[in-house]
Design a protein around this nucleic acid. Structure first.
Lengths: 345, 345
DNA sequence: TGACCATTTTGGATCGTTCCAACAAATTCA
DNA sequence: TGAATTTGTTGGAACGATCCAAAATGGTCA
C-alpha cells in the first residue's frame, strides 16, 4: 500500500550524485557526462522511480503541464469519437496526454469541465462547444495565455482559433454536381437559421447557384429543425413553391433522410423523381435505400488538424488567432439520381 | 500573456487573513467563521483565483489527484465511446476528471499511456485492455496502491478487479430462445479460442445446450476470426457437419452478419431457413435485413458500473479485488425466425 | 478576576521538482 | 607555468498548496 514514494533524492543517493544532476538527466540535458547519466538511469530502474509531473510543473514557469484538454459536445456520436481519436493521435505523439470530457450539449457541464481542467493546469484546450456557448466563457483562459482552439462549430465574434469543415465549398460542390445532372431548380433544405454552420452552408449554396447563372431564389431556402422530422417538413414546403424544385441539397444527412420520407409521402421516389444530397456522411448514408449522396467530412483528419494547430500555439507560447478550414468531398451514391459511374469522377 | 499567477497568499492579503485560513476555506472546513469565509470567497472572485491542484497534490499524502485514467482499446467503436461516456458521468459527478486515451489495440501505446497517466498521479485506472495485454503490466500500479479496474475484457490470472458483461447467461438465453422455437441442432460460431470472452460465451452455450438435454457436440463449435469474413467461413463449415444445425448463436454481431452472408451463398435465407443470433447489439443490428436478433449489452451502464467500482476502491483507499458482471438481455428481431410478437416476451 | 474551555486563526515546515549562481575539474591557449 | 575557458556538478532557494502545533480570541463560571 502506502509505500514511500521514490524521489529524485533517493535516486541521487543511490547513484552517488546530487539531486540536481538527477534532475538534469531527467530533462535530457547534454550537460551530464555519459557515465554519470548511465549510473542515474540505472538507479532509477532499480528503485522503480516515477516522475512526478505535478511537482515539476509547480516550479516550471508557464505551466507546461503536458496536458491538453479536449471537450466535445457528444462523444456518443461517432463523428466526435473519431475527432477525439484524431486529436489523440497527434497530441500523444507529441508527448502530451489528453484530458477528454463530454458535455452532452450542456453548457453548465461544459463550464464545470473547463474549470476543472484549468485547475489541473492544462497547456491548451480544444473544444467543440455545446450549443449556445458564450464565446466569452473562454476569455479567462486566453487571458491567462492558454491557447484555445474551437472545432467543428465556430463561435461568433471569434477571437478564438478554429478548425471547421469547409462548409461553403462542400455545399457548392453538391450544387454543381446537381447542375451537371441537369437540374435547374435546386432547393436548400433544413437547419436552424441562427447557427453559424447554417450560414456557412447557405453561403456555399448561394454562390454556386448564382455562379451557375440561375439567380438566388429566397423561396427555395427552407430552414427547419436539423432532424429527420424537420427534413420531411421542409421538403413538403419546398414542393409547394411554384415552379417546384427538382433537387435539394440538405443541411445534413438527417434532414436528407427526412426529405426522402417526405418525398415518398408525395409519391415521389428519391433518386429517380427528385435528387437529394446530404451533408456529413454518417454511417447509415451508405446502407440506406437509396444510398445517400452526401458531402463527407473526415472527422479524424479534422481532429488531427486541430491537434496540430493547438500544439503549434502551445509551442509558440503566445495565443494567436487562426482559422482553418478542412476540406470536404462529395460522395456520389444513389439519392442524387446520377448513374453509379459518376462516383468515380 | 504571462501574468503572475494569483495564489493563496494574494487572496490572504486581499482578505486580511493568513494563507492557512484561505486554505481552510478552500477545503470547505467548518472551522472558519462565516463572515471570514465570505471575505475570502469574495477576494477569490475579485482576483480571479484558480486553484492549483498540482501544488495541493504535492503536499497531500496518497496522491488524491482527482484524476482517473481511462484507457480504451478502440474509441472509434461506438461501444467503447458509450462506455467512456458512462464512466465520465459517474466520475465527473464525484468531482473527478477523466483522462481518456485510446490505444487502438496497441500494447506499446497502452504501456506509454498508462505510464504517462501514472506520472500525472492518477487516483485510479480503468482499462479495457488491448488484445494480448500482460496482466502484470498493471502490477506496479497496484503495488503503489492505485486501484485498477479492468472492463469488457477480463485478464487471465486476474488479481485485478473487473467489470464484464455476463457472457455466459447472454449466450445461454439465446440458446434457450432458439430451443423454444423448436431448434434441436444449434451451432456456436466464431471467436478466437484463446480469449477469455470466447470461453465465457462458450460456457454459456455448453450449459444451456446440456440443460436442454441435447448433449454437447464438439462438432457444432466452430471458432473463427471474430469478423464478418470469419462468420461466413464458420457457417460454411458448420453446414458441412453431418446432421447439420438449423440455428446458430454467434460470437458477436460481425460474425452473425458474416454467417448471414454465408447462408445466402448456400441458398439459405437467414431467419427463414436458418436461425441466427448475434451478440453485442451494434447499431446496424436494428437496420440490417433481416434485422438481427442479438444479445444486447448496455455499454453506458457498464461504464457507469465500472466507474462506481473504481470510485469505491479509491474511497476505500486500499486495493481490493472484485469481479462484477453486468446483465445483458436478448433482443428478438427477425434473424432468429421468431414471429415479431415474441419480441414482447 | 482568573482559570478553564471552545472556537478561530496562524506561522513555519513540508511535499518533489526545477532553477540559479557558484564551484570543482579538466582542458586549452599564450 | 598560469590564466582563461570549457565541462560537469552542486547546494540552496523557489513554486503553491496543506498540515501541524501553537497562539489568539471570546465566553462561561466559580
Amino acid at each position: 500500500m502506502g509505500r514511500p514514494r521514490v524521489t529524485v533524492i533517493d535516486i541521487a543517493q543511490a547513484a552517488g550524485v546530487s539531486k540536481s544532476t538527477v534532475s538534469l538527466v531527467l530533462q535530457g540535458s547534454p550537460l551530464v557526462k555519459g557515465t554519470t547519466r548511465a549510473k542515474v538511469v540505472e538507479a532509477m530502474n532499480e528503485l522503480g522511480y516515477v516522475y512526478n509531473r505535478g511537482a515539476a510543473n509547480l516550479r516550471q514557469t508557464g505551466s507546461k503541464s503536458g496536458i491538453v484538454g479536449v471537450v466535445v459536445n457528444d462523444l456518443t456520436n461517432g463523428f466526435f469519437a473519431e475527432l477525439a481519436v484524431g486529436v489523440d493521435i497527434v497530441v500523444q505523439s507529441a508527448g502530451f496526454v489528453q484530458f477528454l470530457s463530454n458535455t452532452g450539449e450542456s453548457i453548465d457541464r461544459q463550464r464545470e469541465v473547463v474549470a476543472s481542467m484549468r485547475e489541473h493546469g492544462i497547456s491548451g484546450l480544444l473544444v467543440s462547444p455545446a450549443r449556445g456557448t458564450d464565446p466569452s466563457d473562454f476569455a479567462p483562459l486566453v487571458e491567462a495565455g492558454i491557447p484555445v482552439v474551437v472545432v467543428v462549430r465556430s463561435l461568433p465574434g471569434g477571437k478564438l482559433s478554429s478548425v471547421v469543415a469547409d462548409n461553403p465549398s462542400g455545399v457548392a460542390g453538391a450544387v454543381r454536381h446537381l447542375v451537371s445532372l441537369g437540374h435547374r431548380r435546386i432547393a436548400f433544405l433544413g437547419g436552424f437559421q441562427d447557427t453559424a454552420v447554417f450560414h456557412e452552408r447557405l453561403s456555399g449554396y448561394r454562390s454556386a447557384v448564382t455562379a451557375a447563372g440561375f439567380g438566388f431564389d429566397e423561396a427555395l431556402v427552407v430552414p427547419s429543425a436539423p432532424s429527420r422530422a424537420g427534413g420531411a417538413d421542409a421538403v413538403a414546403r419546398a414542393l409547394a413553391v411554384e415552379e417546384r424544385p427538382t433537387a435539394a441539397v440538405c443541411f445534413n444527412d438527417a434532414v436528407a433522410f427526412g426529405a426522402c420520407d417526405g418525398l415518398r409521402s408525395h409519391r415521389l421516389e428519391p433518386g429517380r423523381d427528385f435528387a437529394v444530397v446530404g451533408f456529413d456522411d454518417v454511417i447509415e448514408a451508405r446502407t440506406a435505400v437509396p444510398a445517400l449522396t452526401t458531402v463527407s467530412v473526415d472527422p479524424q483528419a479534422m481532429g488531427r488538424r486541430a491537434g496540430q494547430l493547438l500544439l503549434k500555439q502551445i509551442a509558440a507560447g503566445g495565443v494567436s488567432s487562426e482559422a482553418v478550414m478542412t476540406s470536404v468531398r462529395l460522395v456520389v451514391r444513389e439519392s442524387c439520381g446520377a448513374p453509379r459511374l459518376a462516383a468515380q469522377a
